[in-house]
Every structure is written in C-alpha cells, then in structure tokens.
Computed example of a mutant assay.
Amino acid sequence: MKKMLILITILAIALTAAACAASEDSSNAAVETSSADAKELKIIASDFAFDQTEYKVAVGEPVNFSIENADGFHAFKIKKLGIEIDQGSSKQFTINEPGTYEIRCSIQCGSGHNEMVSTLVVE
C-alpha cells in the first residue's frame, strides 16, 4: 500500500511538472513588444469576413496588430497565441514559433459570425 501511494505521488508530480512546462512554452509563442520598426498588420473586417483569408508574418519580427471595421463591429482573437485586438486598439507582438494560427472574430456579430475566420502564417 505504501509503495502504491508513493507511486501515485510521483506520477502526480510528474504530470504537474509536464503541464507547467507546456503552459510556459505556449506563453512564449507570442510576446508583447515595443519596437519602432515593427511591421503593420491591419485586418479589415466587414460583415462576416476579413479582408484576407491569410496573413503572413516572419518569425521573430515585431508586428503591430490592429483592426478596422468596414461594416459592423468586430474584434479578433488568435487564441493559440493569446492575442486579442479590439476595435480602436493596436498591440505589438513578436511571434517566436512558426506555424499556422487561426484568427476568429471575437465579438458575436450576427448570423455569419462562425464563418468569420482567417489564418495567420508565421514563417
């Protein structure tokens, strides 16, 4: 019984350590930065669509993210990177992990809201 309790304790510690390491890795994927020479990435949103199906940025390049509403009221979120941009705001991030990330409208904007999806490609 004592060996089983020790084994369960060790397993719980190992799982906790693995979960902490995984959350630390994802938190470093996009880091909020402040650089004078950042690339501008403005997403223009209209009713149920972004102006592009795909946006591209370079790994390690500072990027100013913003949104402009051509029709309706929209904001966007890149969940896997922890980026959320509201209308009228701009935030700068440097993305340190290459990959493809989903961009979604983060405001319930009507019947076509679920189709309001685009992609951010980080190369």
Rank of each mutant, 00 (worst) to 15 (best):
M1D: 12
K2M: 11
L5I: 13
I6V: 13
I6K: 12
L7H: 04
I8F: 09
I8S: 14
T9V: 10
I10M: 10
I10S: 12
L11G: 13
L11Q: 09
I13T: 11
I13C: 13
L15K: 03
T16E: 07
A17F: 03
A17L: 13
A18N: 10
A18Q: 05
A19N: 11
C20R: 09
A22I: 08
S23F: 10
D25H: 01
D25Y: 07
S26Q: 09
S26L: 02
S26C: 12
S26K: 15
S27P: 09
N28H: 08
A29P: 02
A30R: 00
V31R: 09
V31H: 12
E32S: 11
S34F: 05
S34N: 14
S35G: 12
S35W: 02
S35E: 14
A36T: 13
A38Y: 02
K39P: 06
E40M: 05
E40W: 01
L41W: 05
K42F: 00
I43E: 05
I43R: 04
A45N: 04
A45C: 07
A45G: 08
A45D: 03
A45L: 00
F48P: 03
F48E: 14
A49M: 06
A49Y: 00
D51Q: 04
D51W: 03
D51N: 08
Q52A: 13
T53A: 08
T53S: 10
E54T: 15
E54I: 11
Y55M: 09
K56R: 15
K56A: 13
V57A: 04
A58W: 00
A58L: 08
A58H: 02
A58T: 13
G60E: 06
P62C: 12
N64I: 07
F65P: 10
I67A: 10
N69Y: 04
D71V: 03
D71P: 03
G72T: 08
A75M: 01
F76N: 13
F76K: 10
F76G: 11
K77A: 15
K77G: 13
I78S: 03
K80N: 15
K80M: 05
L81N: 12
G82Y: 02
I83R: 10
I83H: 02
E84T: 12
E84P: 05
I85G: 14
D86T: 07
D86G: 09
Q87Y: 02
Q87L: 14
G88S: 04
G88Q: 07
K91W: 05
F93I: 09
F93A: 15
F93D: 08
T94P: 06
T94F: 04
N96V: 05
E97V: 13
P98C: 11
P98N: 15
Y101T: 14
E102V: 07
I103K: 01
I103D: 03
R104H: 09
R104F: 01
R104E: 14
C105G: 04
C105D: 15
S106C: 03
S106E: 02
S106D: 04
Q108K: 08
G110E: 07
S111L: 06
S111T: 13
G112S: 10
H113Q: 13
E115F: 06
E115P: 00
M116D: 15
V117C: 01
S118P: 00
S118H: 06
S118T: 06
T119E: 15
T119Q: 14
T119D: 06
L120W: 03
L120G: 04
L120C: 01
